[in-house]
Design a protein around this nucleic acid. Sequence first.
DNA 1: TTTATATTTGCAACAGAGTTGCGTTATGAG
DNA 2: CTCATAACGCAACTCTGTTGCAAATATAAA
Lengths: 128, 128
Amino acid sequence: MSKTSRNTIARQKILELINSKKTAISHSSLQEELEGVCDRVTTYRVLERLVNESLIHRIVNVNGVVNYAPCQTCSHKEQHIHQHIHFSCISCGTIRCITDHPIAITLPENYSATEYQLTIAGTCPECL
Amino acid sequence: MSKTSRNTIARQKILELINSKKTAISHSSLQEELEGVCDRVTTYRVLERLVNESLIHRIVNVNGVVNYAPCQTCSHKEQHIHQHIHFSCISCGTIRCITDHPIAITLPENYSATEYQLTIAGTCPECL
DNA sequence: TTTATATTTGCAACAGAGTTGCGTTATGAG
DNA sequence: CTCATAACGCAACTCTGTTGCAAATATAAA
């Protein structure tokens, strides 16, 4: 039996903020926008919880910076594997999920995949 | 005109070490194996140089940790885009380039790609 | 509504990765 | 061999993320 997740103010605001964005957001940007709602450590812990509950997902950018985006297309019950592309614009800095585009990736024999990080950097349509 | 790159002892040893590995290696592991050859800052700077010269490439793991691997299949002259999968084994910790396997990724209209980070975590054949 | 308890929080301190400035060393072109 | 400058070592710093612990609080049960 897993422990119950409590609906605290910090949790509400953080989830609200992430869901209100069209693009992914980093911990530090999030912290700025929270403006004293909670400590930065709390933000880290809330983000961890939300990821575990499959309400948001982590995106590791090409430079290694972690960003967070809401889960839209994925089922929140089962495996929860994010097999879609993340596009990181080097001009405007935004990171966007490309969920409506097909990708075909197959691994060689006897490789078993549990997590995908498919990030592509370049220039987005707005900046081209 | 670009400035000339000098063939220093640190550079030699670092490139040698990376080329001798079948799997990617992190800065810290590299530093351990160098055993006093050079300062850790120098290692960072040499790695940056080698990446710019397209002799090695950076792999960002699913957890955000940066690793380095030799460039094999890519031409060292032109664009130097690494459009291949990196597999990170959650059991033995090794990171390997899957260069001999086809992948099909297309972006939507008006997206221009300059850098790929396609990392998949899971269990490798040796650990399965 | 009140109480009990386990979750969550804030704070302080820490750990690891990576960067910068600067004075010194040493590579390699002439 | 000489010399300009690339590369180095060291110290100090920034940024991201983590941990331990006591205090606060959300939620389920009384």
